[in-house]
Amino acid sequence: MSGLLAGLVAYLASFLTNATLYVLFVVGLNLQYGTTGLVNFGHVAFLAIGAYTAVLLGVHGVPILFATAAGVAVSAVFGVLLAFPALRLRDDYLAIVTIGFAEVLRTVVNNVQFTGGPQGIYGYAVPLRDLGLGYQAWQWLFLALVVALTALAFALTEYVVRSPYGRVLKAIREDQEVAVALGKNIVGYKVASFALGAGVAGLAGALLAYYYGAINPHNFEAIVTFEAWIIMVLGGTGRNWGAVLGALIYFGLYSATARYAMSGVGAIAADRLAALRIVAIGVLLVVLMIYRPQGILGRKEDLGLER
């Protein structure tokens, strides 16, 4: 009985950590798309850049704190690079360019030496792990760290979005030509929004790498981007609390079906059930887009206001 309870407690910690990491990841996406209207279909790229940068620097002896900060910074720099096409491109082109960027990045990571190729990297140092705690205790401590950093990112982006700065970002989302006609130089805002969102995703990536204890290119497939989109649109775009709600619902559903996806049901093998679960994710996305594109927390008036 106590074994079962311990298992549940451990499971709860992993559930909450995963969900919180995704909240953080989505907070970055929400700044880019929800607030500024920049369609980023390659968000996972920034997760990967943050993870690999932090881990590789750590492996080469850089202290974890600096390695993590570098992960954030390098992600943000790539965000700036990718923002340049974003300045000129329409939504659909931007979606294609970002998705392409993420796929190309993964191809590169998969094929160069210093990232460990398809095997990835493992056995690197992880924060708080050298305190002499057991794995369970570390899990909860690490969760506390993730929650604290996520809360910080959450609060900072909230502050920015509610400020005059955020007002400019929202105006860019609504009608960037009018924003210019009213005297705003929007170029810097678009670049900054993309870079900040990428930096937040980079932080999520570094933390994710620490949590997993091993990373490889498989962790950064396109599906991760779309999970983030589902979480964002489930809760309602442009709202950080929507990301929290979306992540809880998504991971709730995910966990509820995890048992079957891992062991299979009757004659149906586990990998096929895992595929079936992704079918369900796809259908969920479609149904949401048809019937409630504004998400759960979205205002009714949002409907039909999108251009």
Binding site: D91, F226, V279, V283, L284, V286, M289, E306
Partner: peptide, 23 residues
Amino acid sequence: AGTVAMMIASIGVALALRNALVF
């Protein structure tokens, strides 16, 4: 529906279709 909503829905269709084939 807006262009972005349509794009997201098409991603959903893509995921569902591909994984139905895997199944």
